[in-house]
Design a protein around this nucleic acid. Structure first.
Lengths: 333, 333
DNA sequence: ATGAAAGCGCTAACAG
DNA sequence: CTGTTAGCGCTTTCAT
């Protein structure tokens, strides 16, 4: 049998209360007994039970992570960074891919609640706001990662999507492009801000906004290729395309190749997120990078602070994106 | 406060034992009180505490997943499929990226043990065998996913890597290639079997095995490109390359482009794993697919059976890989 | 500085 | 069919 605190107490010749105290480093315990207890713990290979400890009101040392799809490279990267930060606190992460499905979202939230996770990181667009509000009401700390919802009083960590969209577009403008199209990801809040940045960049530089150049697609290669095909089939086709994420941008590159358009000479393209797709894409994809590691660190720190009730105030942290210039963009002549 | 079983019992006018029984559907309870109890549970929005239930010897409804790196598309896909199967059983998955680092592996295993996870799925090459043996000794069910270790008495689910390597190579041979190089992933057990399959395919078809055509690289684009550069710089260069995973294959495609070699006309390439990289690669990458979903299903089923002690025997399930033919391979003339 | 004892929320005999 | 009760392993007063 797994040794319990009783075994340790008995073998060390002290009470379980004492053992508990040395484990948690509480109260006054003489160096001598402390040493003795540690010794016995080692001998017995004793590991305190998180379960039992959680039952007495302590933490479960587990947090839940809600994401749409772990197989999406962006979210995989997010999960990885969050995990890295969480590990420093000895927190385990329960991964919950919702598929943006409200039933799965509900199921997972219910599971997490029954498990009494210490907190939640939500990185997927919320399907059912009532559910989240209920969680907040129960006092479970929450951090929204890269999603925002002004109506919720919670910690939020995002990248400045508006500025990212602006930067991407301005980069193309500086390369003397005037006919810049955009592919917006459907049903995605962050994409709206990126789009807004695109619009404003054009406006500020007094460039005409062409409705035909604004396309919408779900985050899917073939949908992307479809709208790119439309774009490239126009008599006055764009000389540059800003895709609101790297997957969409990959579709642009593929379709351009099919149309025998050289990238970046005949068509420049910018993506968003700086995922592995941007790296391995050929030519390398110019894209807007989110400081994911840093965002993850802030998220975990905020969550832990709230869990440990070190802070009662909620924060909204917005970090700056960074344009990563690769080979998919150049001056238009 | 969160309602407890006492609140439900009181409000329903029964004992907590009765409530417990209806929750777990045990013993004989009259339909009438059953109904009454369910009613009250709904009213109170009562959710049984997994923590308390786990303390009384039941399950924690959590399993641990050890993988090297969730940001690697193959493992992300694995995690996704496992999660999908686990969800059907109401199991949460704690994600543990070990980075193939033995310290992290040890830390995570210790955390999982303290959390009393119901079982473990190991999808990363084991760093410290003693640790795993200790886990087994404690009676924690384990399934090895896509890794094998003959010395352990545990459930194993893998793909037939040998056959996959054989198929990939034979596919190229059938396309009349005679000079087929291979890039083997370093420090990876599964890669050895794939390599073995390559060797045997060449032998069986009476093709010469050229030592110069056998290259090793870590799973990394630039390492791959480096060895491909060597290959393509040879006077008698290969007409086809089998890369032991899709990332390495992506490196092949990029470097071939740099050498102005047309794929597949001048160089055919085959990958392994059928990740998103193979899909988005341009041209589409012919690759060997692992039946990940099915493997995941078997893994979870085996694990659950062992957890519930339905079966005391361990199994080794080896599924067949499937060659997915895309545009990166063609007949050599 | 240390220990006795009362829970935490639930399960599982065992009685009735 | 339903209830009583003794834990599960740990934390936390409150005494000593």
């Amino acid at each position: 049998m797994k040794p319990t605190i009783y075994d340790v107490a008995e073998k060390a010749g002290v009470s379980i209360a004492t053992v508990s105290k040395v484990i948690n480093n509480r109260g006054k315990i003489s160096e001598k007994t402390k040493k003795k207890v540690f010794e016995v713990m080692k001998q017995l290979d004793y590991q305190p039970s998180v379960v039992a400890s959680a039952l007495t009101g302590k933490r479960t040392q587990t947090i839940g992570l809600l994401i749409p799809d772990i197989a999406n490279p962006y979210f995989a990267e997010v999960a990885k960074s969050l995990e890295k930060s969480a590990q420093k606190y000895g927190l385990g992460i329960v991964m919950c891919s919702t598929d943006s499905d409200s039933q799965k979202e509900a199921d997972y939230i219910s599971l997490l609640l029954r498990k009494q996770v210490d907190g939640l990181i939500i990185a997927s667009d919320i399907q059912n706001m009532n559910l989240i509000e209920a969680v907040i009401k129960k006092g479970i700390p929450i951090v929204l990662f890269s999603v925002d919802n002004p109506s919720l009083y919670v910690n939020v960590v995002t990248v400045d999507d508006y500025k990212g969209g602006y930067q991407a577009t301005e980069h193309l403008i500086q390369k003397e492009h005037k006919d810049i199209a955009i592919i917006v990801e459907k049903n995605k809040d962050s994409s709206k801000y990126r789009f807004q940045g695109y619009m404003d960049a054009l406006k500020h530089h007094h460039l005409e906004i062409k409705q035909d150049f604004i396309k919408y697609a779900h985050s899917d290669i073939s949908e992307s290729r479809k709208v790119v095909d439309e774009l490239l089939s126009m008599k006055n086709k764009p000389t540059a395309i800003f895709a609101c994420n790297d997957l969409l941008a990959t579709g642009v590159i593929q379709e351009a190749r099919k149309h025998n358009l050289h990238i970046p000479i005949e068509l420049s393209v910018v993506g968003f997120d700086n995922t592995i797709l941007a790296e391995i894409s050929d030519p390398g994809l110019t894209t807007v990078a989110q400081p994911i590691e840093e965002m993850a660190k802030y998220s975990i720190d905020l969550l832990v602070d709230e869990i440990e009730q070190k802070s009662t105030k909620r924060q909204r942290i917005m970090l700056l994106p960074e344009l990563i210039i690769r080979e998919s963009t150049t001056v238009f002549k």
